[in-house]
Structures are given as structure tokens and as C-alpha cells.
């Protein structure tokens, strides 16, 4: 009897997980399948699969649209933003955790206060600053306005707090300066947090739509989300060619999927290794 109850429990568990997974994966699956359909088939809900895969949709997006250029620009901008956010976030988090200075708690409160501010509230001051620096309608402006991530500071601070202070002190006694200690001692011990943050920061920069739309209006400065919208949807060259929109969207997701594939093992890793310290 107990065995049967256990089995039913397992089956139910799998059923629930399968259902949730199906709900989560369906939009993605639908996008990829629609990318292989004709324009008429996309609107026809009677069949999920295309009658014959339209690979030409992808060829058309790659060779006849500016989307690959947008993807390249977005990748470049995102990589620079990630590098800057990781560097600034790590330095601020290190100072907040390992350095003793007056107003340290106040700094943390200010940082957290900023985190609670709605993003939209920062648009106008950021816009004015960029305009004064003549950085409107430039990718540099997009990068500079994303130099610091409050979420990153918070995430790294929490991770750094798990590093025994004695290790940092030992590195200081070994002759290490703060930068060296940060990159050679603290960073390797909190690698998973760095990778998690890097990935989240990359996705957010890569997918960002609202802010780049506000500060860039030249199509040559578009990032991928803006480009997709303006070229394929907003009465662009293709009108609303849904099959092409789906093919474009599928292509856009590829860099993110590759990134996930390389970094997924780090998400499940906590802080690694044995310091011999109790924390």
C-alpha cells in the first residue's frame, strides 16, 4: 500500500513538473515552429507544425535585413556593460564588506534606497545628463548610463559576506593590495555569484528596449529589440511578416542560449572550497 502511494506521489510530481515545463517552454517552441511556417500558416491555429519547413525565412532575415548588425551591436554593448557592471559592482561590494570607513552603513542604505527607486524615475535625470555630455543617440551613451548595477552590488555584497574576513586579512599579510585581493582571492571564491550576475546583466542589457529607445533615434544606433520592432513590426520593410518576426526572434535568442549552455553549472554552485575557516 505504501509503495503504491509513493508511486502515485512520484507520478503526480512528474505530471505537475511536466505541465509547468510545458507552459514555460511552449512560447519558445511556438516561436521556433512559427519561424518555419508561411505567413498564412502562422495565423492558422489548427496545426502546430509547419506543413513544410520554410528555412528561407531564416535566410531572408540573415541576408536581407539589418538584424545581424543589430545583434552584433547589442552583443558588443552588452559585453562592455557586463564588464563595467561587474568591475564597479565588485569594487563597491568589496569596500562595503571588507573596508572599515565612516559612513559605510549609510552608503549601503543609499545604495539600497536607489534600488527601490522605480527605473522610470531615473530616466529623466539620466537623459538630461547624457544630453549635457552630448551622448544622446550614441551607443556610448547607452553604455555609460549602465555602468553601475545596484542589483549587482547587492548580489556581490551578499556573496562577499560569505567569504571569511580572515582570508582577506591573510592576503593583506601576504602583501596583497585591495585590487589583487579582490580579483585573486575574493573573486575566485564567489565565482558563481559573478557568473550569475554577469549573465543576468548580459540578458538585461541585450534585451533592453525602453531606455535605448528613449536615447537613440537613428536606426544605425538601434539595439536588437528596437531593431526588431522597427524593422519587422512597425510597418517596416516587411509589414507584419509574422514568420519573419519569429525567425528574427529565434536568431536573437541564439547568443543567450549559447551563454546559458556554458554557464548553467554555476547557477547551482554555492560558494566553493574549503578555507579551513569557520566564516
Amino acid at each position: 500500500m505504501k509503495k503504491i502511494t509513493q508511486k502515485i506521489g512520484t507520478v503526480l510530481k512528474f505530471a505537475v513538473l511536466l505541465l509547468v515545463s510545458a507552459f514555460t517552454a511552449f512560447p519558445f517552441l511556438w516561436m521556433v515552429l512559427s519561424a518555419l511556417k508561411t505567413k498564412a500558416e502562422v495565423m492558422d491555429v489548427s496545426s502546430l507544425l509547419p506543413s513544410s519547413p520554410q528555412w528561407s525565412n531564416f535566410i531572408s532575415v540573415i541576408f536581407d535585413s539589418p538584424l545581424p548588425g543589430y545583434i552584433w551591436d547589442s552583443l558588443l554593448v552588452s559585453v562592455i556593460i557586463v564588464a563595467l557592471q561587474v568591475a564597479t559592482g565588485a569594487m563597491i561590494a568589496y569596500a562595503m564588506v571588507f573596508l572599515e570607513f565612516k559612513g559605510r552603513n549609510l552608503l549601503f542604505i543609499v545604495v539600497m534606497g536607489t534600488y527601490m527607486l522605480p527605473v522610470a524615475a531615473t530616466y529623466i535625470p539620466a537623459y538630461i545628463i547624457l544630453s549635457q555630455w552630448n551622448l544622446l543617440n550614441t551607443l556610448t551613451g547607452v553604455v555609460i548610463s549602465s555602468t553601475v548595477s545596484i542589483f549587482g552590488i547587492f548580489l556581490l555584497r551578499q556573496a562577499f559576506m560569505q567569504v571569511p574576513k580572515g582570508l582577506v586579512e591573510a592576503a593583506r599579510m601576504d602583501g596583497g593590495g585591495h585590487f589583487r585581493i579582490l580579483w585573486e582571492v575574493v573573486c575566485p571564491m564567489t565565482k558563481s555569484s559573478f557568473i550569475t550576475f554577469g549573465l543576468m546583466s548580459f540578458i538585461s542589457a541585450y534585451n533592453n528596449y525602453m531606455w535605448p529607445s528613449l536615447i537613440t533615434n537613428d536606426s544605425s544606433k538601434y539595439l536588437v529589440s528596437q531593431g526588431l520592432r522597427s524593422f519587422f513590426i512597425e510597418g517596416g520593410a516587411y509589414g507584419t511578416e509574422w514568420a519573419l518576426v519569429m525567425a528574427g526572434s529565434s536568431l536573437i535568442v541564439i547568443p543567450l542560449l549559447i551563454l546559458f549552455a556554458f554557464t548553467q553549472k554555476w547557477f547551482i554552485n554555492g560558494i566553493g572550497g574549503d578555507t579551513g575557516m569557520k566564516g
Binding site: G166, L167, R172, M173, G273, T275
Partner: peptide, 29 residues
């Protein structure tokens, strides 16, 4: 600064760098 005093210290909880081998731990300074 602590790093400039030419003093070495052994900590109560050893404070070994977990990501480095024994060789690297000893040779780090």
C-alpha cells in the same frame, strides 16, 4: 599598511585560499 610591515601571521583558522593548491598557497606571498 599590514602588507608593508614585513610580518607574517598564522591565523587561528588557518585562512588558506581554498581555490589554490598547497604549492600556490605557500608561494602566494
Amino acid at each position: 599598511e599590514a602588507s608593508d610591515r614585513d610580518i607574517a601571521m598564522v591565523f587561528q583558522n588557518y585562512a588558506l585560499y581554498p581555490h589554490m593548491s598547497v604549492r600556490k598557497n605557500i608561494g602566494y606571498s
